[in-house]
Design a protein around this nucleic acid. Structure first.
Length: 606
DNA sequence: TTAGGGTTAG
């Protein structure tokens, strides 16, 4: 499974031709009159049950619209004689899970046990799932005792629910261990769903190689991979930028008779959008529609997001109008992508229009909508507008999340309002919001940028004490901040300490240190550091060379500049804007340097 | 009647 760079044909006008959807339009508009979005999910309606008794039971739950309804039905059920079947109780508890009343499910189950109401494996699985959804897989495991006590046999669902719960708590090793134990000791035969749970848990944590091996293992075993399994692997490959492998897998599943579905194509389309491969996006749409698989709001939102990220928000809007014409209604996610599209281009007035038009269409904005707008205002340094929106979040009954706080902290520090930022951070802590890694990075970068070295170092030492400093990125921020505040000695001392605490400097940290030396005009030390990193097996990249090149250019050491130019062009590292500007100044004084720069000679260009 | 897959913000 090699990471091969894909080379697809490029077409300068691809997104416009994509808009035309020539084949898709014909097929889709034809089908739209027959298959409405509602028909995409073809589950049979419960009301068609003709047996009288079953109809009565079904109606009882149809009237349950809220939590209070559910509880009153429960009270009524426990009083009935004879008692309703465990099937009825399991249906009611499942309705409460769907309402996200997990702890209430557990309480009602406790009442059932006290009353001696018989239970079954379905009810027990629902209870385990409720614990898992509360991020208490440990309590989920404790339910296993009830299986032993009552003699109800475990099934694959019981264990799969627990495996999913472990992944949800990021207990990856425990989840994999349980899966292996079940398989090895023949406690239960894993089915497609269990493989999917394990593979999805692994893929979300970047273990694409492992899930690829699991796929191959499944192909050899008795539980053959289904569409869902292939979808997990294809999505992971796309997210890992291995589009060639993902497309090969699509062809492989088709060859093996496993039919791809809308999720398969949506994952691939997302990958292709993120690579800007618009011609291939269209090919996928055509292929999909030829197989009678029609785009959903997910698929369209993926394309809309891809266009917005490429700065083509108007085209994204055109796609949104197109999907509405085809009977697919946009959601808050669709609108958020477009709001962000205009935000990226700095068109905040347009972004605000889009935002308001969503509200006009009775689509409720979510916290991401607010965060996107707030981020836009912060980037434009319009902190008052950002704070207005922040206040609106609570007024509208939402709760700011860690993204909201981080965006505003970065905004405040970015315009030098350090005092307000510190007060805002204190408010965030009082509101019960725990800072995350990003918060700490934002604060450190911001403090150093505003010359608040003491505040930065005090936060850094606090993180050290609390053991939350185990990240090389954090150290890079501190080393960089110290260098840029004229504290090279302190920065170097921390750099030297790194390997003692088990953190190894990477190319970014070495480059930061080299930059620190260059800023002080200590070019020999910078050069020594470059050689040291090479000796340590950490290869310098184009940023490293640009940094050191700028150091030499700024101090007019032309002889060494010449040597580094040779080294840099030999490695085909490109010059960044700053290096180019400095080079132009130096070449104006010494045109002989021009010969060493192939890029500057049009006739020598490749 | 219980468990699995695709989109948005720092």
């Amino acid at each position: 499974m090699a990471r091969v760079a894909i080379r697809y044909p490029r077409n300068g006008n691809t997104f416009i031709s994509f808009l035309a959807f020539p084949r898709c339009n014909a097929e889709f508009s034809h089908s739209a009159s027959v298959i409405t979005p509602r028909d995409y999910s073809s589950s049979p309606s419960n009301t068609s049950i003709s047996i009288k008794g079953k109809l009565r039971v079904s109606n009882r739950f149809e009237n349950v619209k809220c939590f209070d309804d559910a509880v009153s039905v429960f009270r009524q059920m426990v009083r009935e004689q004879p008692l309703p079947s465990p099937v009825s109780f399991s249906k009611l508890l499942k309705i409460m899970v769907n309402m996200k009343h997990y702890s209430d499910v557990v309480s009602l189950f406790g009442e059932m046990q006290k009353l001696g109401i018989p239970t079954n494996e379905f009810i027990l699985s629902i209870v385990i799932n409720s614990y898992c959804l509360m991020h208490r897989a440990d309590l989920g495991f404790s339910v296993l005792a009830i299986f032993f006590k009552t003699g109800i046999p475990f099934n694959v669902v019981t264990f799969n629910t627990l495996i999913g719960g472990l992944f949800a708590e990021n207990k990856v090793k425990d989840a994999v261990h349980l899966f292996k134990k079940l398989t090895r000791e023949n406690i239960c035969e894993p089915n497609e769903v269990m493989y999917a749970t394990v593979m999805n848990g692994l893929s979300k944590r970047g273990h694409t190689g492992k899930i690829f091996s699991l796929l191959r293992l499944m192909e050899q075993g008795s539980t053959k991979p289904d569409t869902c399994i292939y979808n997990i692997v294809i999505d992971a490959l796309c997210k890992d930028r291995m589009l060639d492998d993902a497309i090969n897998l699509l062809n492989e599943m088709k060859q093996k008779g496993v039919p791809p579905d809308i999720i398969t194509y949506s994952s691939l389309i997302d990958g292709l959008c993120k690579f800007g491969q618009w011609e291939y996006v269209r090919t996928m749409f055509d292929e999909m529609v030829n197989l009678n698989i029609y785009p959903t709001v997910y698929t369209f939102s993926i394309v809309i997001n891809g266009l917005c990220k490429e700065g083509k928000a108007e085209d994204a809007e055109e796609i949104m109008r197109h999907m509405i014409r085809k009977g697919v209604e946009p959601t808050v996610v669709t609108y958020n992508a477009i709001v962000d599209g205009y935000r990226l281009r700095g068109q905040m007035d347009r972004a605000r229009r889009i935002f308001d038009s969503m509200i006009d269409k009775s689509i409720e904005p979510n916290i991401i909508s607010y965060n996107t707008l707030i981020n836009g205002y912060c980037k434009k340094k319009k902190l008052d507008e950002a704070m207005q929106l922040f206040l609106e979040i609570s007024r509208k009954g939402f709760k700011p999340d860690i993204f909201t706080y981080n965006i505003i902290l970065q905004g405040l520090l970015g315009v030098g309002r350090s005092d307000t930022a510190q007060k805002f951070f204190a408010d965030m802590l009082s509101a019960g919001q725990r800072p995350d890694f990003c918060t700490h990075s934002i604060l450190l970068v911001g403090y150093f940028k505003n010359g608040l070295v003491e505040e930065a170092m005090s936060l850094f030492h606090k993180l050290e004490r609390e053991g939350e400093d185990n990240d090389i990125e954090l150290y890079n921020i501190v080393i960089d901040g110290l260098c840029k505040n004229g504290k090279l000695d302190k920065a170097y001392a921390i750099f030297e300490k790194l390997s003692l605490i088990g953190l190894h400097p990477n190319v970014i940290v070495y480059t930061t240190m080299i930059n620190g030396f260059c800023l002080e005009g200590l070019l020999d030390e910078a050069k020594d550091m470059l050689r040291k990193m090479e000796d340590d097996g950490c290869l310098p990249d184009n940023v490293t060379y640009n940094v050191i090149m700028q150091g030499f250019l700024r101090s007019n050491r032309i002889g060494e500049t010449r040597a580094f130019l040779k080294e840099m062009t030999g490695k085909t590292f490109p010059f960044d804007t700053t290096t180019t500007e400095l080079l132009i100044d130096v070449i104006a004084k010494d045109p002989s340097l021009l010969d060493m720069i192939p890029e500057f000679h049009p006739e020598k260009k490749k």
